[in-house]
Amino acid sequence: MIIIDYKDRRPIYEQVVERFQELILKGVLEPDSQLPSVRNLAMDLSINPNTIQRAYAELERQGYIYSVKGKGSFISDNNHLVQCKKDEILLEVLQLVKEAKEIGITKEIFLSKVNEGFEEEGKDD
């Protein structure tokens, strides 16, 4: 589920946060499903429990998870989060279009690359 890349320059807790975000946004982790306990996940990953606690705190701050006192951490309803991520990606696309136009990439070339990307994605499904 979570794989730590020790060659990655980012802190381990950020890697844990990013991986959980991916799993939540892709629907692998269902809303209201329980996350592993801090202690269990720390043992599985062979890292300090404080690192997992920090990652969980960050995920909760961002709205990806919620805590229930004495029960643990659970996945939040992610519909809003998915829509926010889609909006963020579409803003990035607009920025890319602007940059592409500035350096002379035509609409046709740009769209062909977008279509190529979607076709490659379809091969994995």
Rank of each mutant, 00 (worst) to 15 (best):
R10A: 12
Q15S: 07
L59S: 08
V16A: 05
K7Q: 14
E99A: 14
D77T: 12
L35R: 00
P49I: 07
K123A: 03
V28W: 04
M43F: 02
K107V: 03
R10M: 05
K113A: 14
L96I: 10
C84V: 13
I4Q: 08
D5K: 06
I3Q: 14
R54L: 14
N78W: 03
K69Q: 14
S46T: 08
E116H: 07
E14K: 13
R10I: 01
M1E: 02
I4D: 00
D77S: 14
V28A: 10
L96E: 02
G122T: 04
V68K: 15
V17C: 01
P49D: 09
K71T: 09
I3F: 06
G117C: 05
E88Y: 11
E102A: 14
L90N: 05
P31E: 08
E88D: 12
I52D: 05
K123R: 13
S112M: 09
H80P: 04
S112N: 13
L91Q: 10
D77K: 15
F20I: 01
S112T: 04
E14I: 07
I75H: 00
R39M: 07
E58Y: 00
E60G: 10
S67M: 11
M43S: 15
I52N: 09
D87W: 00
R9L: 13
Q95K: 15
E108W: 08
I4S: 05
E99N: 13
V114C: 01
H80Y: 13
L41E: 04
Q53F: 12
Y56M: 01
T51E: 06
N79T: 14
E92H: 08
N50T: 13
Y13P: 09
I2V: 14
R19F: 02
E92I: 00
R39S: 15
V17H: 04
L111E: 11
Q34M: 15
E116D: 11
G117E: 10
G63T: 02
I103F: 07
E58A: 11
F110T: 00
L29Y: 05
C84Y: 08
R54H: 11
K123F: 04
S76A: 15
E92Q: 13
K69D: 09
N115R: 07
E108G: 09
E119I: 09
T106C: 02
M1Q: 01
F74G: 04
E108I: 05
K26F: 10
M1P: 01
Y6D: 10
L23S: 07
N115E: 13
L35H: 07
Y6R: 15
T106R: 06
Q62V: 00
V97E: 00
Q21W: 11
L45E: 06
R61K: 15
L59G: 01
S112E: 15
E119Q: 12
